[in-house]
């Protein structure tokens, strides 16, 4: 892809780190990241965290896939077998939640739906420098999406790269986040709607290929309330809510 991964920073909608005691980034923010999630064994990195990566793919792709290709790196390449990682990541791509028992049968469900699934154990280092790295590529005749995710432990995932519709988004990584496709006026409008929502860092944007639109990245401090989801996210197909 000839698209630059460089992000543009947008000032004016910055957020601090809670009480401002430190500027260090917190990968884990909720007590339930630590005491939780409730899940099916045996490994939170290899199942719950991977379902989360798959669900991001599902949210961005928003269509029935024809093929799903998963590239595993490092620890994932060595140990995905027997951990249920394959079931978990495909379950996530199909839109299942972490504690959905359908995850156990996700490969069979995908097969019955005519989706071709393959797993590749890569021998080299992770391209994003994390031992639990999975690159998920999903496509059908209409479009394709690639998501680079890492499972950082305890069922928590980070998203390092999203390639969709000619955009090459390199987010900061921590979920939840909102992506908005549009122009600066759309960014201003969404900024207004999110007034009162705590953001981590400035809004950033990424240019696309053959389009004057940009993809705007909003890193959220905490999940949106149900009301916010209904008011802001639902019914607007330019917005991707990744959590």
């Amino acid at each position: 892809m000839a698209v630059s991964g460089d992000a543009t920073q947008h000032s004016g909608r910055a957020a601090d780190d809670g009480d401002g005691t430190s500027s260090k980034t917190a990968n884990y923010r909720s007590v339930f990241d630590i005491i939780g999630p409730v899940m099916i064994g045996p490994s939170s990195s290899h199942t719950a965290g991977v379902v989360a990566i798959g669900r991001v793919v599902n949210e961005v792709f928003r269509d029935e896939p024809e093929t799903i290709v998963v590239d595993y790196y490092e620890s994932f390449a060595q140990t995905h077998q027997g951990h249920g990682t394959d079931f978990a990541i495909v379950g996530g791509v199909l839109g299942f939640a972490t504690d959905d028992r359908r995850n156990e049968n996700s490969l069979e469900i995908a097969r019955r739906r005519g989706i071709h699934v393959s797993f590749v154990e890569k021998e080299g280092d992770s391209p994003v420098g994390h031992p639990n790295t999975a690159i998920v590529s999903v496509s059908n005749s209409r479009r394709s999406v690639q998501v680079v995710g890492v499972s950082i432990g305890g069922g928590v995932a980070q998203i390092k790269r999203i390639v969709v519709d000619g955009f090459d988004v390199r987010p900061r990584g921590t979920l939840p986040m909102l992506l908005l496709r549009g122009h600066d006026s759309d960014n201003q409008e969404l900024g207004e709607k999110l007034r009162g929502v705590c953001l981590i860092g400035d809004v950033r944007s990424f240019g696309g290929q053959d389009t004057d639109e940009r993809m705007y990245e909003y890193d959220l401090d905490s999940p949106l309330t149900q009301r916010m989801v209904e008011d802001v996210v639902h019914g607007d197909d330019r917005i991707f809510y990744l959590r």
Partner: peptide
């Protein structure tokens, strides 16, 4: 045995 647990902080 792939039963239901609460990760504290991880499943392992």
């Amino acid at each position: 045995a792939m039963g239901v647990i609460c990760a504290t902080p991880t499943a392992g």
